[in-house]
Design a protein around this nucleic acid. Structure first.
Lengths: 217, 217
DNA sequence: TGCTAATCGATAAATATTTCACTGTTAAAA
DNA sequence: TTTTAACAGTGAAATATTTATCGATTAGCA
């Protein structure tokens, strides 16, 4: 029997790739053509070997002495992250965070194409936020079915999160980007990425404390 | 010579603690008094030992058979993350993301107290956003010096990020929560937590692809 | 053309994190 | 009161991730 091995990418690597990506864009803007892992590492305060390993996942090949062609590397990362193909997405919850998401033009650069937003507040329905139309939450299933939406962004209060998730999944969504501070109960064929701000804040606030502890020695 | 060992908390642990925290709040609301690592693990789809080890960092002690007292555990996590003491914070950049941050009432629950926001747009200066006054970016240093601000939230476009960071640091800020997609060049006594949305998106979009790859075998 | 320094790619070593296995404690049921 | 099952805490094993080392390749320069 042949072992079939799926190489899943380590999450730390996935988190670093966008950092490389943004750096590369800036370097390219400056007219630079090639970049080495050494340079990337120095810029981002990482280990060059780690950078090389991360980049290896995208299957680009570099060349000794010069490194990687920047345009190629950008393309390689984009492809690896599927940022080069458009996916239809919807937003549920047009509170301040949801509104910010719609206003963040850059999402189109990541292949995220918001085709609709949903809310339950009557006064919002029918309006447009940053060019995206707000629909009645009850029409969610219908619309995402029609437009083959694969990604749902969840930016509702905790109380509404599970119901919204359920409805999205019934409509055929494959992945949920969850900003609500709760665990969604979903079938394990559905992908959930928890993106609560509090996670990142916890890292920050605890590290501050640990920094003080260290200094006080 | 005595080895002085500072036990820094693993970042994965810090990322999970807020998830426990939110779950605990909900359980407490329901009138539950005690919770075991087994239950937490089941709810969040984690390993019980991992939950126990994470919780251990906060230095609470549980008891066999019943687990942890929920109120105590909540308190313990809050203290560990310094979410129980207020820190003054400022926001730089009142675009859609910045506005969302100010609108996110919950930050006060995490001990984050926004005392001011800053922008360069004349028409915004002097106004209030979600109860926080917007000041001229040029007054940044002065105001954060006066109010002993320790945390700066950076939500400006890339081009403005480094300058804003520099100015915050000059004012005495200790930690920057950076939402701009770039690397800040700062002295290593300053703490920077990068919280670009693209990091989390990368995890999501790549995992979708890997899920498809797996299914197509 | 030959030399040198920089770098990739690969493998190995080191470190960090997660999971396992076990011990002793406790609450509740028998 | 005794028995049982659930659980915390802990050290060890397994796994994942990062860092170090090294040979091969290449660009630039003498």
């Amino acid at each position: 029997m042949k072992e079939i091995k799926i190489r899943t990418t380590p999450e730390p690597t996935l988190r670093r790739l966008p950092r490389y990506y943004h750096l590369l864009l800036r370097l390219k803007e400056r007219g630079i053509n090639d970049v080495s892992s050494t340079v990337i590492a120095k810029e981002l305060d990482l280990d060059p070997t780690q950078v090389r390993k991360d980049i290896e996942y995208t299957e680009i090949i570099g060349r000794p002495k010069t490194g990687y062609n920047i345009s190629d590397l950008i393309k390689s990362i984009r492809t690896f992250l599927s940022w080069d193909t458009n996916s239809n997405a919807v937003l549920v919850g047009t509170g301040s965070l949801g509104t910010a998401m719609l206003g963040y033009k850059n999402f189109s650069k990541y292949g995220l194409n918001f085709i609709a937003a949903f809310d339950i507040k009557k006064e919002l329905i029918g309006k447009e936020i940053h060019g995206v139309k707000v629909y009645n939450f009850n029409d969610l299933k219908e619309i995402i079915e029609k437009d083959k939406v694969t990604i749902g962004v969840l930016a509702v209060p905790v109380e509404a999160a599970q119901e919204a998730a359920d409805k999205m999944i019934k409509g055929g969504i494959k992945a949920i980007w969850n900003y609500a501070p709760c665990q969604l109960k979903v079938d394990n064929s559905i992908l959930v990425e928890n993106a609560q701000l509090s996670q990142s804040l916890a890292v920050l606030t605890r590290k501050i404390t640990e920094l003080y502890l260290k200094e006080s020695l």
